[in-house]
Amino acid sequence: MLLDERDRKLLDLVQKSIPLTRRPYLAIARELGMGEDEVLSRLKRLKEAGIIRRLGGIFDSRKVGYCGTLCAARVPPERIADVARVVNAYPGVTHNYLREHTYNMWFTILAPSPERLKEIVAEIKAKTGIEDIREFPAVNIFKVYVTFAMDGMNRAHGTRETDR
């Protein structure tokens, strides 16, 4: 779908924060010079189009009581699909990427306890037969702020305005 300038402004604002007031969409509307219903209908459209993956609470996993680790696995190319199926089936696996390295599959796991984390890694090894999985548990979180600036992006799948 094509994003217009009002969509982009709205996306930039709602990625930063939605106000904690009784009528949050009205507050957003006032800030952007739109109507409340326009904000609601644009957000619904952006959500239905899958541009907005989720609009809700963004939590600090540690303060919610969860702990996490980054795993790096060495997976033979022909086994990637079936190993990914096993790994991705865990709800605590939130990110899984293939990367350019001899350790080619990198995924993160969140679990309610360090014991459960260890268990999940052991289960993945047992189910896949992939023994070479490194674990890099988090020691400190300096920053998590995942926003994507939309201002300056001229099309949904497009190039940046500076590229034109």
Partner: peptide
């Protein structure tokens, strides 16, 4: 909800984008 925000349990209320779809 405000208290969860103050304590940092909730970083913010906001939108997560499907980054591949926005380029």
């Amino acid at each position: 909800v405000k208290d969860l925000g103050r304590r940092g349990v909730m970083r913010r209320l906001g939108a997560a984008l499907q980054h591949l779809k926005v380029g």
